[in-house]
Design a protein around this nucleic acid. Sequence first.
DNA 1: CGATAATTTGACCGCTTGGTAAAACATTAC
DNA 2: GTAATGTTTTACCAAGCGGTCAAATTATCG
Lengths: 214, 214
Amino acid sequence: MAIPRAAKTQRRTRIQEEKEERILEAALDVFSQNGFRGATIDQIAEAAGMSKPNLLYYFRTKEAIHRQLIDRVLFTWLEPLRAFDAEGNPESEIRSYIRRKLEMARDFPRESRLFANEVLQGAPHIEDELKGPLKALVDEKAEVIRTWARSGKIAKCDPYHLIFSIWSTTQHYADFDVQVRAVLGQNYAGEGRFEDAARFLEQLFIDGLRARQS
Amino acid sequence: MAIPRAAKTQRRTRIQEEKEERILEAALDVFSQNGFRGATIDQIAEAAGMSKPNLLYYFRTKEAIHRQLIDRVLFTWLEPLRAFDAEGNPESEIRSYIRRKLEMARDFPRESRLFANEVLQGAPHIEDELKGPLKALVDEKAEVIRTWARSGKIAKCDPYHLIFSIWSTTQHYADFDVQVRAVLGQNYAGEGRFEDAARFLEQLFIDGLRARQS
DNA sequence: CGATAATTTGACCGCTTGGTAAAACATTAC
DNA sequence: GTAATGTTTTACCAAGCGGTCAAATTATCG
């Protein structure tokens, strides 16, 4: 009798732990490439090397898999912003924020695309998280930036749009990877593009935000 | 007898013209919100106010609708970059390019999202266009930028990443609109965000690219 | 008008999809 | 060992999907 699925007992078995991980890993592949509606349970099951009903034994619905993935990603995705330190040196804080975000785009492109897919399609599953925790965190860091600007450490600028522009420029290398590769062409498209991007973006933001007297 | 669908005669009737337009308009809504796989013909037909078989009388397959939409968008989407003038003043050229791209994000967000959806999911339908015409155009304009940099009119920088960063920052306001609204909150989220964005981005890029002696 | 071509509809098909039921099989605890 | 629990499989279903077909309807033109 196994009516209640894999969650009746509080303790998760070794098998549960391992299989759920495999499913999430496979689902990340599939969701990030096809979006929620475009992904099928069969695809995920095959990628995870198990049958569809077996997968559904661990996650009752497609949405359940997606939700858990999104929750994870959302958390780690904001890590770099959380690390933004009000006490640190503005220039080096911004510089290392850009660098960290770029590293994430390079090392976790699937996570970035999962998130992009979700937001692009109207964020039907995470509107609350965006309006709640995300907004709160951004508000907090925006205040830090505003303080820096007021004390003349960086140029006066709208902190929200500054954050948006760092998000968009860095995530571009994950979300629009195909386009970036197509434009740069074979010759250029080694992983070196991330270093070139880092150099360019650091120059742009640091020089663009350098405090001016005018 | 109407065996060959709406294309046998070279001359397109008034009805054809009008219905096809209505279908494409509806399809833009649906595709841009759900991506290709996520969109259904029924949805598009309903949005266009006609029955599914009727829609399929004008476009034989779902892909045919999508392809035509993509072709259109791709063309108009590159218009601002094409307008980039080698003879013009670098600062004002860059400034107006940013402004135009932002206007497009504001006025044609569905087109932007259609494109983003496509690229995000690996650009299965437009890889050739990216590697061909798009790359060619970017290569050309990159050379212009490089010339400006060499002659000291703007700071030395990687022209490709400069273009990427303008694309990403401006399109962000269309593609990630939900997130932008969520973060800015009710108070801020009037259309004024585009003006704030324009101010910020112009400042960032102009100051970030101002020629330096160092 | 009448004929011919263009358009629209309703019924339908085969396939894929998310999800279920129940029984077979494996593991663990005593 | 054996009983209880946890896991996996096989067979299946109802709904949704892209698309077809033939008949019905409407527009066009001489």
